[in-house]
């Protein structure tokens, strides 16, 4: 296993607070919410596991071998799993999770009656492929047909947030919204083009 301190990117003699801060930042970065239905979700999960282990190891070492669940740990994050009543849809969900999109798409086309879940799954496949426009249209349809379904609404709201959701490193998170028209113009001139440097 890698040195837990280098996993968190802090030095051996960092204070407890610094360790915690570094851990929190990384946990925010690799949080499963940022990688929902993302083809790279498994990589994010691995990273999350790695930093959780590193943080646990450090807290254990520092508390003199006391083993207990560490306070700030995001430890047992449970992936919200939704299940499907229909076995065909359950199968399709499985295929999507495994990344077998062609097979999932084919099974979905064989389903005769299109309900909210059909559109939701169709949207999920499109989203995974990176076909964001189609994903959006399908999610909208799904929510229209079953407005009370939290799963569909959540998927749609993630897309409606655009770049405002998800993780951004410190320093990149603010500013863009607050800019008025005039500042934008000034900034645009600075896109590695205008003026001298």
């Amino acid at each position: 296993m890698r040195d837990p301190y280098s996993v968190l990117g802090v030095s051996q003699n960092a204070s407890d607070d610094e360790v915690k801060k570094a851990y929190r930042e990384l946990a925010r970065k690799y949080h499963p919410d940022n990688y929902q239905n993302n083809p790279l979700a498994d990589l994010a999960e691995e990273k999350m596991k790695e930093i959780n282990e590193a943080y646990d190891t450090i807290t254990k070492q520092r508390s003199g071998g006391y083993s207990g669940s560490s306070p700030g740990s995001y430890g047992g994050y449970q992936q919200r799993s939704y299940s499907s009543g229909d076995p065909v849809y359950a199968n399709i969900r499985n295929l999507i999770n495994m990344g077998d999109l062609n097979q999932a798409e084919q099974l979905l086309y064989e389903v005769g009656q299109k309900n909210g879940e059909w559109y939701f799954l169709s949207g999920s496949i499109a989203y995974r492929k990176g076909w964001m426009d189609e994903a959006m249209q399908n999610y909208v349809r799904a929510v229209q047909m079953e407005p009370n379904n939290m799963e569909y609404r959540q998927a749609l709201s993630v897309m409606q947030r655009g770049t405002m959701g998800g993780y951004r490193p410190a320093g990149y998170s603010t500013g863009m919204d607050a800019m008025d028209c005039c500042t934008t113009m000034m900034c645009l001139n600075c896109l590695c083009g205008g003026g001298r440097c």
């Binding site: 940022n34 790279l40 994010a44 990176g130 964001m132 770049t163 998800g166 993780y167 951004r168 490193p169």
Partner: peptide, 11 residues
């Protein structure tokens, strides 16, 4: 949405 996916991958 594409930009968001790029950011997530970059990380």
């Amino acid at each position: 949405n594409s930009l968001a996916q790029m950011g997530a991958a970059l990380q």
